[in-house]
Every structure is written in C-alpha cells, then in structure tokens.
C-alpha cells in the first residue's frame, strides 16, 4: 500500500553564502505516511521544507510531487509555516487568516465567496477554534495561533502537508489536539511531513522518520530506524532514548 511515492527529492543542495545548509539530499517519501524530520539546530530541517516548496532556491537538485515538478502540483501541497514567521499583530481576524487557505484555488483577483467561507468555518471547527472566529489574531494564545495556521492548511484540502514545528510553544492539550488531526489526515490517505523537536514523542506520534544533519542520515519506518545509533549519528553525541515500541 505504501509503495506510491508522494515526494521524491534528488541531489538537493542548498547554501546560504558559502556554507552548505543541505548537502546532496536524496529522499523518497511514500504516500500516506506521517513523517517526522528530526535533527539538531541548524541541521536544515526548515530549509528542507522551504526548498521543497520553492521558497528557497536550491543550488542543485530536483523535487517531484507525485512524479511531476512541484510548480505543476502546487494545489496538492499545503504548508504550515513556523508560527513565529509572521506578525500576529496584523489587523485581521482568525476566520480571515483561515480563509487565506482558499486563495490558492481561487487564483488571481477572484474574491472568496460563501463556499470559501463555509470551508473556512468547517476547518475552524475541526481545530476547535470556531468560537474564536471573529477574534483579532493578536488576542489568541500561542496554541490557538498554531491551530489557526493548521486550519488554514486544512482548508487547502491538499494531498501532502508540510508543517514547520507545529508543536513549538503549545501546551499539552493543543499538542494532543494537533496530533489527532494529523493522524486523521493520515487515515484519510494524506501524507504529512512535520519538522519535529521532541525526540521522546517520535515513536508515539509518527510512523516514518527522517534524520537530518546537513546530510540525510537515515529515513524509514520509525520502528526500524529510530534507534540510538541513528540518533548518535545525527546529534553527534551519545544518545540514549528510551524507545517504547
């Protein structure tokens, strides 16, 4: 069942100035996995996502989404940026931000209508934020802001979801709520790729994992490759994680 490749990356190399941030990454992500990208600070985790999404121009390499270049497959891909990447004091409401998820399918100039609003409200309900739809976004807590970002991606109704540290700075309740939504996405056959920091929760949350530290260290099913050996290779220190399986 998991033989179809959703995202295929070949020879991807990215550099800011002289130092390479990502070096010759080959990666095939099968359809329908919930995958964590783990690695130390500066390992290029966010950069990997951003260069897949063409936000950062790689020096070399290619990215294929279901066998075609990303630019032709944008509508299949949704993105949840890091919460800190935007100014939450921007004058707009929660509903408005979620509506932004519909802009891509609308295209240039066309305005969102009732259909788009309905979709946005549904997404808000899914993340448990319907009551806050008219709230100014600066008056939301960190966890609520993260849920809004998630809802915005859900509205895109994509096949592949890229998320940059969705659990950063959220409380335990929100973390559980988010991971349940991600698991639901996987159940619906979607592919979810998450930059993740908390190694303890990897076996519990994810079924696929990629170790990254400028180079790709390993990628595969969590139960096969999430071990001290790979962790040590990635983080450079002797790592002992109690892996419950």
């Amino acid at each position: 069942m998991k033989n179809k490749i959703a995202v295929q990356i070949d020879d991807l190399t990215v550099a800011y100035n002289y130092k390479p941030v990502l070096w010759d990454i080959d990666l095939a992500i099968p359809e329908g996995v919930l995958m964590a990208i783990v690695g130390p600070n500066g390992a290029g985790k966010s950069t990997l996502i951003k260069s897949i999404l063409d936000i950062i121009k790689p020096i070399a390499g290619s990215v294929q989404i279901y066998g075609k270049p990303y630019k032709k497959q944008r509508s299949l891909v949704a993105y949840v940026p890091q919460k800190g990447s935007v100014d939450w004091d921007f004058p707009t409401t929660a509903l408005d931000v979620v509506m932004m998820g519909t802009y891509g399918s609308l295209g240039w100039i066309k305005r969102p209508g009732q259909k788009e609003k309905k979709a946005a409200l549904e997404a808000l309900e899914k993340v448990g934020m319907l009551a806050f739809k008219n709230r100014q976004i600066s008056q939301l807590s960190g966890g609520q802001q993260q849920r809004i970002f998630l809802a915005r991606a859900l509205v895109q109704n994509a096949a592949i979801y890229f998320m940059d540290e969705p659990f950063q700075g959220v409380d335990a309740t929100t973390e559980k709520a988010i991971i349940n939504i991600l698991k639901e996405l996987r159940k619906a056959g979607k592919t979810v790729i998450v930059v993740h920091h908390d190694l303890q929760t990897v076996p519990e949350y994810f079924d696929w994992v990629t170790f990254l530290n400028v180079k790709k260290i390993a990628t595969g099913p969590v139960k096969d490759i999430f071990n001290d050996d790979n962790l040590t290779k990635t983080y450079g220190i002797n790592y002992k994680v109690s892996v419950q399986q």
Partner: peptide, 22 residues
C-alpha cells in the same frame, strides 16, 4: 482593490503567498 486579496496575503505571510502560487 483589484489585488486586495493578494496584497493582504503578501503583507501577512509572504512565504505562504509563494506556496499558493502567487
């Protein structure tokens, strides 16, 4: 007025605007 939607998106989240194909 014509590009209101796109400009608002750009002001709020430029990277995301790019991923939507604008």
């Amino acid at each position: 007025l014509l590009f209101w939607k796109e400009l608002k998106l750009l002001l709020f989240d430029a990277d995301y605007t790019k991923t939507l194909g604008f």
